[in-house]
Nucleic acid binder design. Structure first.
Lengths: 142, 142
DNA sequence: GTAACTTTGCAACCCGGTTGCACTTCCTTT
DNA sequence: AAAGGAAGTGCAACCGGGTTGCAAAGTTAC
């Protein structure tokens, strides 16, 4: 889901998710769209000289609420986020598997690999799934 | 994996995992064996009047290293732990799915539901999987 | 009994996440 | 254009889980 997005694209993308396109938000979306791996708040912070943590925090939060991005809990202690595909509604059917590389620490969306269906015991209601595989990624094995 | 364990049982269990059976460790194992849901450090702490966080922290750590318990990252911000089955070596084949109830906040091991096999993209090496389903548990839906 | 090692306890720290509040910006209404 | 209200931003401070360093206590080997 990387890069190559005009300002207009960005505005449209925010608009399509009902997010008021402020300057800050466009900048954050821009950073997000350039990532090849999921990004956490601390790392996002590092992409800006002057922006403050709270604003970025809240930006991510609204992006998540509006389903522009999704949260990934990979066990590293930092919650990470990545852009949703355009049609994603973050329903169980939309979910994919994630991969955390032990070596480089990066967390990748495996957009092509849907989260497998699970038959829960009787009485349990499924609402979401967080599936993270850990191991060594292709680039680190080369 | 609940309760009903004699002191001898506990010593044996620690022993089988190469953990020197100190008083503290037996107490912690005792608490762990009484749980119906996974437990985190803060909650474990609350089970003791006087024991100190660090010791419990390190106890969990060695238990985990020795594969007596396994870690569950459920996204609540607290890492949780639950006893491994006796034969568990924490290899991918040994892993099961976990369930976090949004309502009661408890995290359950679904020991009967193995983590599905995933075909990773070429070049990726799988070492472990953390799969947590969230929703409403059977007791909370009653 | 003493030396070497392990475990425990205390204190302090780190860091990600989060909240409260004041200030600014933007949008609406007149 | 001005006033009012809502939404967004920035600062400061806080919270809580996790983690480390170090000294004291306990254990084990000789």
């Amino acid at each position: 889901m990387p890069s190559g997005m005009t300002d207009e694209d960005k505005k449209r993308q925010l608009d399509s998710r009902d997010i008021k396109p402020t300057a800050m938000r466009e900048l954050v979306l821009d950073v997000l769209s350039r990532q090849t791996a999921a990004i956490g708040l601390p790392e996002l912070e590092a992409h800006f000289e002057k922006a403050d943590r709270t604003t970025l925090y809240r930006t991510l939060k609204t992006f998540e609420e509006k389903k522009l991005i999704h949260k990934i809990v990979d066990g590293t202690g930092t919650v990470k986020y990545a852009l949703c595909s355009e049609t994603c509604e973050c329903e169980p059917d939309d979910l994919h598997v994630h991969f955390l590389c032990e070596k480089c620490g990066k967390t990748y969306c495996l957009y092509d690999i849907p989260v497998p269906t699970i038959n829960l015991p009787h009485g349990f209601k499924l609402e979401g799934v967080n599936m993270v595989i850990n191991g060594i990624c292709a680039s680190c094995r080369k």
